[in-house]
């Protein structure tokens, strides 16, 4: 099936709702039922959102250690669960949903996020992104249990080209850079960020760091950045929520508090992207220079026969 590219997507507004979830650790079915109540709340307040975004590990909790193998799901099964839950709550309403989950891909396990389109009770998995940068230091231990994703792909939606980046993915500037160069106008970032750092004036240091990264990323590439942060404490580690929509000029449009479950809603004017890029044409500049940078022979990149030692 061809992607449902809406040629008018640059003018159509995008109503987005970020669900800052606070799941019960490991209780997938229970969390899914609660998500159904949130979906019902979202559709009860018209206009209903076009796109619903949830955090990383939104329906299981993040720190699972070995239990990740018990809770990881096939992407198609997870997407079907999301679609069925929406359908039961909202009937035939059309929606796109992006949500983080632990994926079991035939015995290889990933920290993934799915983008699924739901319409009239049917659904279509538009994209699955597998987290490429797995934090394995300090409090984090992802790579002990999970495999790295190997590809960063953008994908077409009825609102234009998007990309999914999970948590640490977006801390590496080259990830949003490549997504933007490949055409992404909206970056969806499901995240689970344990809070730390109490030296700052008015917020945790890790929240301030996230804000700086998200603002700089959105402004550099002229993209909307939709950040869904997991909430709640997990074994003493408080997830910092702070879900937010950042506009293509690098400013937060709306933000949730750090603590507790919330819904964040915004209507995005997609024409803002073109205006921001006209004002600050960094992405256009990058497209011209990037090949020169990547062809630099001093870079430690595979170089075909030369690099393989022949």
């Amino acid at each position: 099936m061809e992607p449902p590219v809406n040629l008018d997507h640059r003018a159509a507004p995008l109503r987005v709702a970020i669900v800052q979830s606070k799941p019960r650790k490991g209780r997938y079915e229970e969390n899914l039922r609660e998500l159904g109540e949130v979906f019902a709340q979202l559709t009860a307040a018209q206009p209903a959102p076009d796109l619903v975004i949830l955090p990383e590990a939104a329906l299981t909790g993040y720190f699972l250690e070995g239990a990740v193998y018990e809770l990881a799901l096939d992407a198609r099964r997870f997407a079907a669960d999301l679609a069925r839950t929406w359908h039961e709550a909202a009937g035939g309403a059309t929606v796109d949903i992006a949500c983080g989950f632990f994926e079991n891909a035939g015995g290889t396990y990933y920290n993934s996020a799915v983008y699924v389109e739901v319409e009239h009770g049917k659904h279509c998995v538009r994209h699955v992104h597998r987290k490429m940068f797995l934090p394995t230091y300090g409090v984090f231990d992802e790579e002990r249990f999970l495999s790295r994703g190997r590809r960063l792909q953008t994908f077409e939606t009825r609102f234009g080209t998007m990309a999914l980046l999970i948590c640490e993915d977006v801390w590496h500037a080259i990830m949003p850079t490549i997504a933007a160069v490949k055409g992404a106008r909206v970056l969806i970032v499901p995240s689970a960020a344990p809070g730390r750092g109490i030296e700052e004036d008015d917020e945790l240091g890790s929240i301030a760091r996230w804000r700086e990264i998200l603002h700089a990323t959105a402004a550099e590439h002229g993209v909307y950045l939709l950040y869904a942060g997991l909430a709640g404490f997990e074994g003493g580690k408080g997830m910092t929520g702070s879900s937010r929509v950042v506009g293509p000029r690098g400013r937060t449009i709306v933000q949730a508090p750090a603590l507790g479950a919330h819904i964040v809603r915004a209507t995005l004017d997609m024409r803002e992207i073109d205006l921001a890029r006209a004002t600050l044409p960094l992405l256009g500049d990058l497209g011209a220079v990037l090949p020169d940078l990547l062809l630099d022979e001093e870079l430690p990149l595979p170089r075909g026969l030369h690099a393989s030692g022949h």
Binding site: V245, Q255, H262, I263
Partner: peptide, 8 residues
């Protein structure tokens, strides 16, 4: 019901 924060 979750609290809703709307962009102004």
């Amino acid at each position: 019901m979750l609290p809703v924060i709307e962009a102004g």
